[in-house]
Amino acid sequence: MTIEKISQLINGNISGCTTNRDEYKVCFASDLMSDVLRIDTDNLILLTGLSNMQSIRTAEMADITCIILARNKKAAPEMVELAAENNITIIESAYSMFHIAGILFQNNIKPLF
């Protein structure tokens, strides 16, 4: 699934890297970044309610290129800048984690475990 399709499904807003052409098949949801840093899967969507520099840094280190920020959390300008620098797409959505997870699951995005 492309970032445009994901964003459309969750009524999202795309920032950071807006030219991302990757296809995503798997999603992992967590607010604890060390849980995310355990994962070793390519083209993973990170769904989180954590909107700070550490969620972007975590994506940078773990080679994650798509982050969804749930519950209307807005990405601060320095987050957007860091994301763009590292080819990371941020999608902000007003929906809750549960709501977003449900929509993605229905649309055939797979869980990791």
Partner: peptide, 17 residues
């Protein structure tokens, strides 16, 4: 620390891995 997204207790084992 938890509010910053850490505190799962996974860091040291991630490092070891």
């Amino acid at each position: 620390v938890r509010e910053m997204g850490f505190g799962a207790g996974m860091g040291l084992s991630n490092m070891k891995k």
